[in-house]
Design a protein around this nucleic acid. Structure first.
Lengths: 144, 144
DNA sequence: TTGCATCCGGTACCCGGGTACAGGGTTACC
DNA sequence: GGTAACCCTGTACCCGGGTACCGGATGCAA
């Protein structure tokens, strides 16, 4: 009888590296699974689906810490409100990020339109490069 | 007589850390400056402006390697064409990034609208979470 | 019971953009 | 010529999300 899936099987089905499974365990995304008598991990079969959820949440822009948190609070406190609030916060972050990128895009378009020819010694008239002081926030980093 | 600015002065005027100046030197963004008899760096005064340019380029989404490259090719080969082409490439990258973020935003909005209450066991009707297979590209990373 | 595939834990490394620290040498001013 | 402030080199560390390698132990089938 099979007490669960071996790490190699889980990794293959989920499209991940075995090391990544152990990494997720360390990070608190996966509960420590049962073990065979010899110490090999035996995962419950729904682990594969859980990993799919984790990957989906990552695609939504959540960090691994945030995903771990969501998984845990999902089990404990009043869950629904929490997920919705976090999703809304994440939308706000994404909007800010899009606004940043849009501003940068505009500045780049100006550089192209003005036919700038050098970062340091541009000879074009009304060169926009000296005025690139937009976006004094985070340079171009990910959300906090 | 002053043979140039000391690193502390440059760092302060440019709003950077001294370590960062040396880091930029290693990365090829700043040429190795002259030295005092005792070995202290003495920077030409326009270094401060150059650092401003570097920061501007970073804000435009160029990596340090790309900036170094732009600064070098700006001096050598046929410069103008290069800068314009790279700026256009960068605009395309940014557009792709914005498209990704917009898709993610849409998915998050669905999660909010549907009043999902759990990542793993959502009880809402027509829950969108199982369908979060959008954006099979890079998860949410920076441009290549 | 032999042999190969798989897995174990621990540790080190990768990317990009820096920052920090230790232990010493220099500069500048009084 | 003292002494504070500054600077030097070299090395290690930070973040996030993993990946790679090592030597040894297990699992499973013939």
């Amino acid at each position: 009888m099979t007490g669960g899936l071996r790490s190699g099987e889980v990794a293959e089905r989920a499209g991940l590296n075995i090391q990544t499974l152990r990494y997720y365990e360390r990070r608190g995304l996966l509960a420590a699974p049962g073990r065979s008598p010899g110490g090999h991990r035996l995962y419950p079969p729904d682990t594969v689906a859980l990993l799919g959820v984790i990957k989906a949440a990552q695609r939504l822009g959540f960090t691994l810490d945030e995903v771990a948190d969501l998984l845990h609070t999902g089990r404990r406190r009043h869950p629904g409100r929490d997920l919705r609030r976090r999703a809304q916060d994440k939308i706000a972050e994404i909007d800010a990020r899009i606004a940043d990128l849009t501003a940068i895009r505009g500045a780049l378009a100006e550089v192209v339109d003005a036919r700038c020819d050098s970062l340091t010694d541009c000879t074009c008239t009304d060169c926009p490069i000296p005025f690139l002081t937009i976006s004094t926030r985070r340079p171009a980093g990910e959300p906090a």
